[in-house]
């Protein structure tokens, strides 16, 4: 079996998808951890506002997740389109 140019492109696309997802998941992981930790501290200091803080925390996490989602979209494009 001979390795042709198309095979190389396919291999590079799959490798790129894996790398994009792996590196792209670092930022959201750190960001969501910071947001969750800060929300825990704030709830510990002020337990009466727990509902509002939880809501704000979830929205903040969903926003900081978006870079991870972009890398997911890039990975999907590399797998299914290239």
């Amino acid at each position: 079996m001979e390795i042709t140019g198309a095979d190389l492109i396919r291999a590079a696309a799959l490798l790129g998808a894996g790398l994009s997802m792996g590196f792209g998941a670092i930022g959201p992981g750190v960001g969501e951890g910071i947001v969750g930790g800060s929300a825990c501290e704030a709830i510990g200091r002020n337990p009466r506002e727990a509902g509002l803080l939880t809501r704000t925390m979830l929205v903040g996490q969903a926003v900081s997740e978006s870079t991870g989602i972009y890398s997911l979209v890039v990975a999907l494009l590399l797998i299914f389109v290239v």
Binding site: A62, V63, E65, S66, I69, Y70, L72, V73, L76
Partner: peptide
């Protein structure tokens, strides 16, 4: 782009 790709990516990623 960010608002629409966020929703699309979350739902699509979940289903995958």
């Amino acid at each position: 782009v960010s608002i629409s790709f966020r929703l699309f990516g979350n739902i699509m990623g979940g289903s995958i």
